[in-house]
């Protein structure tokens, strides 16, 4: 029994990190109505940035946030401004611009292959960081310390973004744009600038997720793909555009992945995850925590 509890706790912790990787996906979808297929690659870029910052400076991995968050914000902001915005403008009368999805897929391939070309295919990690392999012992339970940090980072990031969206001028403008673009522009909101900011915020949260992963995860050019697919499942499970839903959806996936192997072969967990995904799509297509609202 104690092992199931231990697995549940570690599953919640890892799941919250999955949720954090999906948070940016749900923000970008909520505002731009674009499924960002490059999100895993943005996470990968964030991991490389964090890796270099930490290995060159030798500081605590989480101090890399000071560099990673602004760098990733700017990266996302410029990516949207330079590459995605022109296509958006060309297709502004289309409700769900499909070309943009193709473009984000292109960005995914370019980023992954560029990284492969420059840094090579080898797995990298942070060998001697203060969080690596640390365990917290509570009675008989062993709780992973880097995942605990990740959990704290995930919850505080989601809370901070939520606060920003609720209480600030730009945050309200972002919400207004996500609900009705045309009406928002009649309020004097430049929708393309809002898209840049939203994409920047989404990318920055991917950067935060990258920092939480770097202390215990291997880093390689296609690492994003693993989180990409999970991210899509999580945001659909939690409800597209719902930030709390992303974190909770992540936690559900994390718990399934960690508890299920107690009872069956680990390969079955994937089947359970996808099965749950299908059931949710059939029963509640707007997701577990999504709001049924047509934009």
């Amino acid at each position: 029994m104690i092992y199931i509890l231990e697995d549940a706790i570690n599953g919640i912790l890892m799941g919250s990190i999955y949720g954090l990787t999906a948070l940016g996906l749900t923000i970008i979808f909520g505002v731009l109505k674009v499924i960002n297929f490059a999100h895993g690659s943005l996470l990968m870029v964030g991991m490389y940035v964090a890796l270099w910052v930490v290995s060159f400076s030798g500081l605590h991995p989480y101090l890399a946030l000071i560099v990673v968050v602004p760098v990733m914000y700017l990266f996302g902001y410029c990516l949207q401004d330079v590459i995605i915005k022109p296509i958006f403008k060309a297709e502004k009368d289309v409700r769900e611009p499909i070309t943009v999805i193709v473009v984000t897929t292109g960005i995914w391939y370019i980023l992954d292959n560029l990284t492969l070309l420059i840094f090579g295919p080898q797995y990298r990690n942070l060998p001697d960081n203060p969080l690596k392999g640390k365990m917290l012992e509570i009675g008989d339970m062993m709780i992973s310390v880097p995942k605990l940090w990740g959990f704290i980072a995930a919850v505080s990031t989601a809370a901070a973004v939520y606060w920003y969206f609720q209480k600030t001028r730009t945050g309200r403008a972002i919400r207004a744009t996500s609900l009705d673009r045309e009406a928002a522009s009649l309020m004097g909101i430049n929708q393309y600038k809002i898209y840049n900011v939203a994409f920047g915020i989404g990318t920055a949260t991917a950067g935060i997720a990258a920092v939480t992963l770097v202390p215990f995860y291997n880093i390689f050019p296609t690492v994003g793909v693993l989180f990409d697919i999970k991210g899509f499942i999580i945001v659909v499970l939690g409800g597209l555009g719902s930030m709390g839903g992303a974190i909770l959806g992540g936690i559900i996936i994390g718990m399934i992945e960690s508890i299920a192997p107690q009872f069956m072969t680990a390969t079955w967990t994937e089947a359970i995850v996808y099965g749950l995904f299908l059931v949710v799509l059939f029963v509640k297509p707007s997701g577990l925590f999504g709001v049924k609202y047509d934009w």
Binding site: R169, R172, A173, R175, A176, L179, D180, E182, A183, A184, L186, M187, G188, I189, V291, Y293
Partner: peptide
């Protein structure tokens, strides 16, 4: 064309953007 999932006050505040 209100921002339907925002409060009345937030709708008004967005008006003053």
């Amino acid at each position: 064309r209100l921002f339907m999932l925002m409060s009345v006050k937030d709708n008004l505040i967005v008006g003053a953007y």
